[in-house]
Design a protein around this nucleic acid. Structure first.
Lengths: 341, 341
DNA sequence: CTGAAAGCGCTAACAG
DNA sequence: CTGTTAGCGCTTTCAG
């Protein structure tokens, strides 16, 4: 195992000081253009690579952004992360990712790991059952910025990037009502999380505004997984009086319900009109295509990373911002469309 | 911004040396149980956190494993990574992930970044258009182990973890033949990649063994994306003589074809029997359910990470291994099932 | 524009 | 079982 080349090796070869090499390599202002060129060339030729650890140790800055997400394997999350990575690497930042697996306690451990790793900033989307955000306060104490996205805390003290879940929940329910639905079921998840809570509120208010009574019997809570959604669908089918519409809090769940309903001979949207959320690819693949909300996952990731980096670079102070709301819109497809508009 | 607590601060408080503190915190063998207890307690109480950078700088080891994958947003990849993360974090390793976005040149950059980050080991699944694996040879030179998984190089010098793509391709084609298919189309991707290449070989040989002529006209190459697959489906529909079977190299692609075929009035599996690959959730959601190959994504990730960590710990020498093949199996579902077996 | 020198916080010999 | 010592490789004053 051959030893690594250091700036001292380069300095010796060139008969200059290590400090000069360091400055030349860093494009430090006030360095002779010629010596810079010589250093860079020699470095390349000797196969030099900078030692992040020495540098970080010295600078007390890691050029690393931490990302904590519930789980990687959803279309929304992986798209958002792809965007973050793109922005970050263009700006010379590394990203480290950890999954909470929807567990609040794992999220606490992950936050600690990020803290120990001394990330310069943290991007977070909360787990299903996270109760408080105390595990992030140590970051604030050290002036490490934390930006929440998608699943954000209720508290208004945090910086968060979201879409208008309430409005979209309202609009999509209103759309179902306009298609003639009178009994609209709702499949949701843990209402601690803004995304589900607000979609649910939108649903309720849309019903109310249309003069339709809200009934708890039509609301089903589960983790939206394939299995849980399938169980919910079965439960819906066993109701004395079936609903004639269904708004599921995500597309995966809507897709599972559609499958079960169809297997039981129901016609979609004739018997039950269905809507999902997120514009997941699955919403375009199953039959009928699912009415959903176009979720700007890429833009959200892009924006979160960009704000973070600009903040770290001192260009803007994100911490005085409270909330950023991205555009999103209902996409009407066959699963809910009964009449020509 | 309050200054960080170091082992010196603890040492001073306790009137012992920094070395002892370091040893106590690391559960170093041969340290007095009592002093250890005092150190650990004091560290907790002072809010000490270890400085990875100083430690890494000193140890010349980062406790970090790099993962390079084509893209995060596929069910296979995100599941495999979830497994890797689980294994790694249990063993005290961090994981850093980067996406090549299916681009060979991005993969080269990512490899360099991993190298500069001084990962202790590297886990790689190749991009579509990667031609050589020269960009990984610098790792070998520094004795940094590289393990390939899923999309692996042809060369037998690398350590790789795969499933038997050839056998599965063969079996699934044979199954289609047994269902009465005579003209079986195949949708594949870049044949540089073992996974597509071998599935394709399996397909060809199964045809041959059944006495069916192989025809280039029935093979369609694309990137398997939603859009490209949809185009391929349209192209198939425009053939003078339609195929009566289709084996697509992944489920997403199979699902897109099914959608197009159904939209054009074809019956699945009656008119065209269809099979995919991977057992992606979508294969269970669309109608009819897609016959596919159960891909042990979680196990593959688990195994890759476990072997890597055992190797790094000196428990086993993975580098003398050439190839590890995991179990996988054809799952027969409605999209191909014409007769009772 | 460049050099000397100090030190970031930790660990590993080595010596007791 | 514990202390002393000497760096790991880099950046950054402070002087020139």
């Amino acid at each position: 195992m051959n030893k690594d080349i250091t700036i001292y090796d380069i300095a010796k070869e060139l008969n200059i000081s290590a400090a000069t090499v360091s400055r030349a390599l860093k494009d430090h202002s006030g360095i002779n253009g010629n010596t810079r060129k010589r250093v860079v060339e020699k470095a390349r030729q000797m196969g030099y690579r900078s030692n992040f650890f020495a540098s970080n140790l010295r600078k007390r800055k890691t050029n690393t952004i931490g990302v904590i997400i519930p789980r990687l394997n959803s279309h929304f999350v992986s798209t958002a992360i792809a965007a973050m990575e793109k922005v970050a690497s263009a700006a010379g930042y590394n990203i480290i990712i950890s999954q909470s697996n929807e567990s609040g306690s794992k999220e606490i451990i992950n936050a600690q790991t990020m803290f120990d790793n001394r990330v310069d900033g943290l991007l977070v989307s909360l787990a299903y059952d996270t109760d408080t955000v105390n595990h992030f306060s140590k970051f604030a104490e050290k002036n490490i910025p934390v930006i929440f996205f998608d699943r954000v805390p209720e508290s208004t003290e945090q910086v968060s990037i979201v879409i208008d879940n309430y409005r979209n929940g309202y609009d999509i329910t209103k759309h179902l009502i306009e298609q003639g639905c009178k009994r609209i079921a709702h499949v949701t998840a843990n209402l601690k999380r803004n995304v589900y809570n607000e979609r649910f509120s939108g649903y309720k208010h849309a019903l109310m505004d249309a003069g339709i009574n809200f009934s708890d019997d039509l609301v089903f809570s589960c983790d939206l997984s394939e299995q849980a959604s399938t169980e919910v669908a079965a439960k819906i089918l066993s109701m004395k009086k079936l609903p004639d519409g269904l708004f599921a809090a995500n597309d995966m769940s809507a897709a599972c319900c559609i499958r079960v309903f169809k297997q039981n001979g129901l016609k979609i949207p004739k018997d039950i009109a269905i809507a999902g959320f997120n514009n997941d690819p699955v919403s375009r693949l199953i039959e009928p295509n699912i009415t959903t909300v176009n979720y700007p996952a890429f833009q959200m990731g892009e924006m979160a990373a960009t704000y973070m980096i600009n903040h770290l670079a001192g260009l803007t102070n994100i911490l005085i911002t409270n909330k950023i709301i991205l555009k999103s819109e209902v996409l009407i497809r066959e699963s809910s469309l009964r009449k020509k508009s």
